[in-house]
């Protein structure tokens, strides 16, 4: 189920509670798909990155080739924030008189730690990487941070989309007020609206400044809205993207997974499958007893999420570390 799902999608997002094996499963699926000949981009959005540890090679924000046709990227929130701030600084410096550039830098320095800054930066970078994946790869596999963070992250495009919509509506209202004023023969308002409406009125420097600022605000907001809409479209299109939840068959992961599936449903991201990792074999007294407990938990999640396909991955003797370890898990997934 898991591999055929990945084979038919362009984006596969892997989520779930911390410590259940998201990174291992994401890596194994990515490797399997690369072995079938697809070009795969494996991205981690978890600030506590594990891809480098798992593959045993340095990865980082710039990305590294970890296997043939398989490239890994670890999104760095601090770096993504810094590059956004640098772009804003560049634009601000042009708008601000020379002697105030230090004030600008100070303001941006404080903004670096504003709430939500890192999340938005991660989202921005994820959008970039998915765009790059669309151009240079056949499949993007996203290894995410634990449940809550990810549900929040994937809800951001919609929330922020509403926010930019709200500002754009207010901006449109300002423009309509200017139109009404121009119709009443207000020369300044007419000048703000541009040459088509300005007619015989002379356009003052102040009005010209306002006109260009109004256009700039609109442009910034519309560019932002387009980016968010595109990302949201990709993440919520079930023919492009599949979200799978990894869990182990234990009480807390089962409860958290049910909650995650519901949260994701609320943000419009449908869950395409559940991966129950590290299933104990019915061997020896201890593991047999353990398996019976897991069976109970499996029944619980099946009845809580009846429509969602479920695949079981057996407990492995070895650890999933290095290319060999990932290959072993990929082989197991295929069986």
């Amino acid at each position: 189920m898991l591999l055929s799902l990945a084979a038919r999608r362009r984006v596969l997002v892997v989520g779930g509670k911390g410590g259940v094996g998201k990174t291992s499963v994401a890596s194994a699926v990515a490797l399997d798909q690369a072995r079938t000949g697809r070009r795969v981009l494996l991205v981690s959005t978890d600030p506590a990155h594990n891809l480098a540890h798992l593959w045993g090679v340095p990865v980082g924000d710039q990305g590294a080739r970890v296997a043939p046709r398989l490239e890994a990227v670890e999104i760095d929130p601090a770096r993504a924030t810094a590059s956004h701030l640098a772009a804003v600084r560049e634009t601000l410096r042009r708008a601000v008189p020379e002697h105030l550039t230090r004030e600008v830098d100070r303001h941006l320095e404080l903004a670096r730690d504003a709430p939500g800054m890192h999340e938005a930066a991660v989202l921005e970078r994820l959008g970039e990487v998915i765009d790059r994946g669309a151009a240079e790869a056949d499949l993007v596999v996203v290894d995410t941070a634990p449940s809550g963070h990810t549900a929040h992250l994937l809800g951001l495009p919609e929330q922020m989309g509403r926010w930019t919509d709200g500002l754009l509506r207010r901006h449109e209202r300002t423009r309509r007020l200017d139109v009404a004023r121009a119709n009443l023969g207000d020369e300044e308002a007419a000048a703000v609206l541009g040459p088509a409406r300005a007619g015989r009125f002379a356009r003052g420097a102040r009005a010209r400044g306002r006109e260009s600022r109004g256009l700039e605000i609109r442009e910034v907001l519309e560019r932002r809205r387009a980016l968010l809409t595109r990302l949201r479209g990709t993440l919520t299109d079930p023919s492009t993207t599949a979200f799978v939840v990894v869990l182990v068959a234990e009480h807390l992961p089962v409860l958290e997974s049910v909650e995650l599936v519901e949260q994701l449903g609320g943000t419009g991201v449908p869950v395409a499958g559940l991966v129950v990792n590290r299933r104990s074999p019915a061997q020896g007294d201890l593991l047999t007893a353990r398996r019976a407990v897991e069976d109970g938990q499996l029944a619980a999640i099946r009845s809580a999420l009846p429509g969602v396909p479920l695949v079981e991955v057996p407990l492995l003797a070895g650890e999933v570390v290095g290319v060999d370890g990932v290959e072993r898990l990929a082989d197991v997934l295929q069986a």
Partner: peptide
């Protein structure tokens, strides 16, 4: 507190003149 700081920041150059 502004949860949209990432996005408002890019509007700062546009409103700075006002």
């Amino acid at each position: 507190p502004n949860p949209a700081a990432f996005y408002t920041l890019e509007l700062l150059p546009a409103v700075y003149g006002e």
